[in-house]
C-alpha cells in the first residue's frame, strides 16, 4: 500500500459523504423543504475533496464555490452547518440571513462565498497577506475554487494577478466542467487550454482529469505542497463534467450526449471505487459500509436541523453594522 493510503481512503470517504448529502439535499429541494436553490457538485467530488483534505482548518484558508460540498466536508465543515444553512435553522452559522452554498466560518479560515464569481481570489489573497504581515504565514496555504465561466471575470484576473505579484501561497482550482450554466467553453474563452493562463500570470500550473480519483488526490496535494513550500500561487485546471444541472431546477439538457458518454462524463466515485479496490486500498465491503455510515450521519444532520427553530423576524436584529454606537443612531 502507498504511504498516503490512509489519506486516499479518507478523501474517498469524504466524497461518499458529500454525494450522499447532495442526493439528500436534492430530495429535500424537490419535496419543497428547501427554499431558494440547490447547486450540486456531482462529478466534481474528487478534485474538491482532494483540495479540502490537503488543508488544515484553523491554519489554512479555504474559500469554496458552489460545487464544493466535498471540499467543505474535507476541510472540516460539519454536516450540521450544511443542513442548518439549507434548511434555514436559526442555529446555523448564517442564521437564516444567507442560505445554501453561501455559508462559512471566516474566523476558522472558511470565508462565506458571495454569488459574484472570482471575488474569492482576492479575499483569500488578503487573508494570506494579513498572515504574512502578522508573521504567521510560514507553512500556511490559501485555496479557492472556481469554474470555467468564472475565469472570464475581471475579479479572477485581478485576484490571481495580485496573488502572483505578492507571491502568496494561493491555490486556485479551476473545475472546467465544460459549461458555465448552459454556455460551452467555446463561448467562454478562446485559449487552447485554461492552463495556459498560468504562464500569463507567472504562476505554476497543474492539470488533472477531474474524474480520475487517484490522479486528483495526487495533483491537488502536490499543488498545495508546492504552495506550502513557498512556490507561490498555483493554478490547477481539472477537466470534467458536472453530472447534474446548474442547479436542481435545471436538467442540463444542453449537454450533448456525446460529451456525457465520453471520458469526461465518468463519475469520479465509480472511478475511485474501482481504483481503491484494484489497488487494494479498500474492499468492496468497506466501501459499501462507508455509504451506509454516510446515510446515517446525513439523515441525523437533516433531522436535527429540521427540528430546530427558524429565524424570527420579530427577534431579528435588523442592523447590518457591527458598531453599537452607529447601530443606535437612526439610519
Amino acid at each position: 500500500m502507498p504511504e498516503n493510503s490512509e489519506h486516499v481512503r479518507l478523501v474517498y470517504r469524504q466524497m461518499v459523504m458529500s454525494r450522499v448529502m447532495e442526493m439528500k439535499l436534492s430530495s429535500l429541494y424537490k419535496a419543497g423543504k428547501i427554499v431558494g436553490g440547490v447547486y450540486l457538485g456531482k462529478g466534481q467530488e474528487a478534485i474538491s475533496a482532494s483540495l479540502g483534505s490537503c488543508l488544515q482548518r484553523g491554519q489554512d484558508v479555504f474559500a469554496p464555490l458552489i460545487r464544493d460540498q466535498a471540499g467543505r466536508i474535507a476541510f472540516g465543515e460539519s454536516l450540521l452547518d450544511t443542513t442548518r444553512t439549507y434548511l434555514g435553522s436559526a442555529l446555523g452559522p448564517m442564521r437564516g440571513r444567507d442560505g445554501n452554498i453561501h455559508r462559512g466560518r471566516p474566523l476558522e479560515g472558511n470565508p462565506a462565498m458571495i454569488s459574484h464569481l472570482g471575488t474569492s481570489l482576492s479575499v483569500v489573497t488578503g487573508m494570506l497577506f494579513a498572515k504574512r504581515m502578522k508573521g504567521e504565514l510560514a507553512g500556511k496555504v490559501g485555496a479557492t475554487c472556481i469554474g470555467d465561466g468564472g475565469t472570464s471575470t475581471g475579479a479572477f484576473h485581478e485576484g490571481l494577478n495580485t496573488a502572483a505579484v505578492e507571491k502568496l501561497p494561493l491555490v486556485v482550482l479551476v473545475a472546467n466542467n465544460q459549461f458555465a450554466y448552459s454556455t460551452p467553453n467555446d463561448r467562454q474563452f478562446a485559449c487552447d487550454n485554461l492552463l495556459d493562463k498560468a504562464i500569463g500570470y507567472g504562476v505554476a500550473g497543474h492539470y488533472v482529469e477531474g474524474s480520475d480519483f487517484l490522479a486528483s488526490v495526487e495533483t491537488l496535494c502536490h499543488a498545495v505542497e508546492q504552495a506550502r513550500q513557498g512556490g507561490g500561487p498555483q493554478l490547477v485546471v481539472a477537466d470534467l463534467l458536472r453530472l447534474n444541472g446548474h442547479g436542481e431546477h435545471d436538467d442540463g439538457a444542453y449537454v450533448p450526449d456525446q460529451i456525457r458518454h465520453s471520458k469526461l462524463g465518468r463519475d469520479c466515485l465509480d472511478v475511485g471505487r474501482e481504483q481503491l479496490v484494484s489497488t487494494q486500498l479498500a474492499t468492496e465491503e468497506e466501501i459499501d459500509r462507508w455509504w451506509e455510515e454516510a446515510r446515517e450521519e446525513v439523515q441525523q444532520a437533516v433531522t436535527t436541523a429540521q427540528m430546530e427553530p427558524k429565524p424570527d423576524p420579530y427577534k431579528e436584529e435588523w442592523s447590518a453594522l457591527a458598531n453599537q454606537d452607529y447601530r443606535n443612531r437612526p439610519v
Binding site: 471566516p106 474566523l107 470565508p111 471575488t119 474569492s120 481570489l121 482576492s122 479575499v123 483569500v124 489573497t125 488578503g126 487573508m127 494570506l128 497577506f129 494579513a130 498572515k131 504581515m133 502578522k134 475581471g154 475579479a155 485581478e158 485576484g159 494577478n161 495580485t162
Partner: peptide, 13 residues
Amino acid sequence: DAMIGLAIGAAIE
C-alpha cells in the same frame, strides 16, 4: 476590485 477584496480578506484576519 482586488484591492478591496484583499483588504476584506485582511480585515477578516
